[in-house]
Design a protein around this nucleic acid. Structure first.
Lengths: 155, 155
DNA sequence: CCCAGAGTGTACAAAATGTCCACTAATTCA
DNA sequence: TGAATTAGTGGACATTTTGTACACTCTGGG
């Protein structure tokens, strides 16, 4: 539920220099290796650390356009849920149900504006999607980050 | 700019089981270790892989509420840009400028609804923010994912 | 007072890494 | 055509890291 300062420093260090490994990490923080390992195991067991996979930049893959698409949903009985259909579209990076009746918010990427239109058409074709409204991200002055929150949570 | 099938398989495997390391990865894919290392180095050099840091779940830290906050901005001359101010708020995980004049879209987390109000108040207090409009994420049927896109891009 | 939990320091075998090398196959280019 | 470049293979080696175990200390709580 809560993390302390050592947890915070371990996570910060590993995010800043992920290649260093547990041993080097323990050296830099001045604690025993076993401590760092135990902390990491505990953080993973509690679900705080969900993975270590390589982080991929969609823009580097050619998906330069990011958009947030709001969907108005009409749930159709006896059909595959809308979310399951959306999950089949690779360009949808995440989807949330949001306040306001049957609405969803999706983060979508595309290769360009024309390609975005194609993706939106795919979304509109999903059974139960009534209407969509898109907002294009022109710039990202604050890219996704988690360290400030970790530090705020852990001192 | 583009990745091939081997890149895609390397990334997929490492995201699925990040702990296995380069050697085990090469064994599973039936290629030489040097090849995997070279591929990973190249992906990192091209910016496709941006890092390996531990992925943190804000909810596990107690930040159960996720919201998307749209800001209407009036740029004030001679002041710190709005984005820089927003970057100081740890609960803002990312911020985009979006279509529609002076608007921004922020992803915000908070410990609960009351806490979300506090964060929104912080945002409103930022110089240049005229108005905010919040949407709370009730559920996340499609959590953030990148693998389908990688597979679509690389075969 | 004693205990449980957390951290320390050490030890050791097993595994992975960084870094070479020589060789092959495919592509590009003069 | 021939030469050069690039990517991949397979092997080797010393070094480093990991997984795991153990005995010890320190702390707060019952």
């Amino acid at each position: 539920m809560t993390i302390d300062q050592l947890d915070s420093r371990i996570v910060s260090l590993l995010r800043a220099e992920p290649r260093i490994g547990v041993l080097e990490c323990s050296r830099r923080l001045g604690v025993a290796r076993g401590t760092v390992q135990a902390r990491l195991d505990r953080l993973a067991a509690r679900g705080v650390i969900t993975g270590y996979g390589p982080d991929i930049d969609p823009a580097a893959l050619g998906f330069d356009v990011t958009a947030f698409v709001t969907l108005q949903i009409r749930q159709v009985a006896g059909h595959v849920p809308v979310a399951d259909q959306l999950a089949l579209i690779p360009e949808i990076l995440e989807a949330h149900t949001i306040t306001g009746g049957g609405d969803m918010l999706c983060r979508v990427v595309a290769r360009n504006n024309a390609d975005l239109q194609r993706v939106i058409d795919l979304i509109v074709d999903v059974q139960g999607v009534v209407r969509t409204s898109s907002v294009i991200a022109l710039d990202t002055p604050v890219p996704y980050r988690i360290l400030p929150l970790v530090r705020a949570a852990g001192g």
